[in-house]
Design a protein around this nucleic acid. Structure first.
Lengths: 153, 153
DNA sequence: ATAATTCCTATAGCCACTGCAGCTTCAAGT
DNA sequence: ACTTGAAGCTGCAGTGGCTATAGGAATTAT
């Protein structure tokens, strides 16, 4: 129906289905240079071969792992030079792991504070609500630094 | 220097220092209606009393807890009606806690996958790099669902 | 009086997409 | 051959929660 089991090139929709991403995302990746400009059909529609499917799969997978587009750009550069040592790939991945672990720690501290706050509520009216109170007064937190404004994306 | 220990109103910079946030953020909050339009000096500069400091502290604190601006809008509405029952406050906080726990779970699964991936690298060149390989081939992941594209903000 | 600082508005940028409007092209069915 | 509907095209706006900058006016310090 929409696949090309033989060598014929794919439409953008087929590529999107195969890579499990949206059509617009593919065009966006082309626009920012993660994917090369696609060759066009006579009617100006993009046509793709398997190489782009692999590249796109790589990109989506790396995004699922939380790598930024800039990091992926570097990873793709490295993957395009297979004879170079993989130290930089390793370093990039380790840096990302550290970032994830740091976010995890912040989010975990946040969860604890939030759970503690929620546990304080025993019904009643808003003016005796411990949650509102806790949000109003930073001193009611266990530690200042536990969730202090750092980006916890 | 810049504080007003007596009853005189504060400038936006003083308010920003006291609430530990940026001047632009205050103007932004006014713009989106989290803070009321500030009264102005003769020269059109914003002047603030302590009430706004408290409101802003509440907002910043709730943001530190990861509440969205929309959620904070609701919390402020509730805080402005102290005689109402606090059920809704409680429900909002519990919902947010659940959201945080779900993010935490996703991020934790991601961390595990990433750590596993990083551990596979034993040096060498890029074409034998297990990290690149893992990113290229989703089948090398333990479980499909562990980090599959869900927003893990 | 002057200099340094802070304030004002308006606008653009961040990230990684997503959605829409208004049009053209393609593939399948009759 | 013709119609129809799906899928494609470009370009632009919007998301969230700020942050940064430009160019000018007001305030404060010396």
């Amino acid at each position: 129906m929409m696949s090309t089991p033989d060598g014929r090139p794919m439409s953008i929709g087929t590529l999107a289905d195969r890579a499990r991403c949206k059509v617009q995302t593919i065009r966006y990746y082309e626009q920012i240079g993660l994917l090369p400009p696609a060759p066009r059909s006579a009617g100006n529609q993009r046509r793709y071969g398997d190489a782009v499917l692999h590249r796109l799969t790589f990109i989506r997978h790396a995004r699922d792992f939380g790598f930024s587009v800039e990091a992926i750009r570097e990873l793709l550069d490295m993957a395009d030079h297979p004879t170079m040592p993989c130290d930089e790939v390793d370093a990039l991945a380790r840096r990302h792991l550290q970032e994830v672990e740091s976010r995890l720690a912040r989010l975990s501290a946040l969860r604890d504070e939030l759970a503690r706050m929620v546990a304080l509520c025993h019904g009643g009216s808003v003016d005796e609500c411990r949650i509102i109170e806790a949000l109003s007064d930073h001193r009611l937190c266990r530690q200042e630094a536990s969730h202090g404004g750092a980006s916890l994306k």
